[in-house]
């Protein structure tokens, strides 16, 4: 019994780590939460204030005069880039999963699947490098001007087309990063699905594709929703690639699909150095509040996905 108790104690470390992580961030960010109030979530004015004057007392906190911390533009950038990524990744991911599950010989399937799953293994910063040196010049010089010309009648696609850095580029890179999550999970679910429903559909005269689309895919609906939510969580928290291709806008709301943006995750990296110059420490604490908000959002999103996936095969976890 001693061994079991020891294992249980060690196993609790996982739970304790998560609790400490959230608790510590919350305690550290508490002065910022008190100071910023609701302002934090609804205003666009992240500013450290006048760093060369003396700190003043506002809302019971020592801050620099003129300091404001409003991150609405970060929330908008995060949600919009994630929305683009998920809107593109779900249909592409489903298509690729259907193709891999039923469209290729079983002998080839592991190799072709591995090829797609490589996308999940490539580190975020390598995506950023690729995006920066290859994708941005390509999109900025050729694709975006053409889109502005031909799709300009759609409100959000109207110019100026910008330089290639921005919302759509971030969304496209994020799409590639999250799509293998959907494809791999859905393909596993389709392959391990019991075949009698499909056989019944085929016996009734359905074609292979009709059986796949009308019988097999609805059967894994829960896996599709779960893995899409999981992918959403991944996109929300993605840092390095977005940092390198988003243009790191400050205090601006995106007004078209080409505008430069910042996301909560990338903002933490890009702003910590300047936040450290605030002698009152309120800027660093406000960044901790950003991290806390991001953490809570991802916990909610992931809990939702896990509850949905819980009823399904637990072994679908094995995706990076």
């Amino acid at each position: 019994m001693l061994f079991r108790k020891l294992m249980a104690a060690l196993a609790s470390i996982v739970a304790i780590v998560l609790l400490i992580l959230v608790g510590f961030l919350a305690i550290y960010a508490w002065p910022a939460i008190r100071f910023n109030g609701l302002h934090f979530l609804v205003k666009n004015n992240w500013s450290l204030g006048f760093l060369y004057s003396d700190p003043i007392l506002r809302h019971g906190q020592q801050v620099m005069p003129g300091a404001h911390y409003g991150i609405l533009f970060l929330i908008a950038g995060t949600l919009l880039s994630t929305a683009i990524a998920v809107l593109l990744a779900v249909p592409i991911g489903v298509g690729a999963a259907l193709f891999l599950a039923e469209g290729v010989p079983a002998l080839l399937r592991p190799w072709l699947s591995f090829f797609i799953e490589l996308l999940a293994a490539i580190p975020s910063v390598v995506y950023g490098l690729w995006g920066l040196v290859v994708v941005i010049p390509f999109l900025g010089h050729h694709v975006f001007p053409a889109m502005q010309k031909w799709l300009g009648f759609i409100p959000f696609f109207r110019g100026p087309a910008g330089s290639g850095y921005g919302l759509l580029t971030s969304g496209l890179v994020l799409t590639l990063m999250i799509v293998p999550l959907i494809t791999a999970t859905l393909r596993d679910a389709l392959v391990s699905q019991q075949s009698h429903l499909r056989d019944a559909a085929l016996a009734l005269g359905a074609s292979r594709y009709e059986a796949l689309w009308t019988v097999q895919l609805p059967g894994v609906r829960r896996v599709l929703i779960g893995s899409s939510i999981l992918a959403t969580g991944r996109a929300l928290g993605e840092t390095m690639a977005v940092l390198m291709v988003s243009g790191n806008a400050l205090n601006v709301m995106p007004n078209n699909i080409y505008t430069t943006i910042s996301t909560m995750a990338s903002f933490i990296v890009s702003q910590l150095d300047s936040a450290l110059t605030d002698p009152t420490g309120m800027a660093v604490k406000s960044l901790a509040e950003v991290a806390l908000v991001l953490c809570l959002i991802s916990i909610v999103v992931n809990s939702l996905a896990r509850v949905l996936l819980l009823y399904q095969d637990r072994m679908t976890f094995g995706v990076i």
């Binding site: 249980a8 196993a11 609790s12 996982v14 739970a15 780590v17 998560l18 400490i20 992580l21 510590f24 961030l25 550290y28 999981l230 969580g233 991944r234 929300l236 928290g237 993605e238 840092t239 995750a265 933490i268 990296v269 910590l272 660093v284 960044l287 901790a288 991290a291 991001l294 953490c295 991802s298 916990i299 999103v301 992931n302 809990s303 996905a305 896990r306 976890f317």
Partner: peptide
């Protein structure tokens, strides 16, 4: 119950963005 709680929290921990972990380690 402990096992299912731990399993669930491990799954949630996977989804916590790495930058949040980094910032936690930074402040802590």
């Amino acid at each position: 119950r402990l096992a299912s709680i731990i399993r669930f929290l491990a799954d949630v921990l996977v989804g916590v963005p790495s930058i949040v972990v980094g910032y936690f380690v930074y402040v802590a």
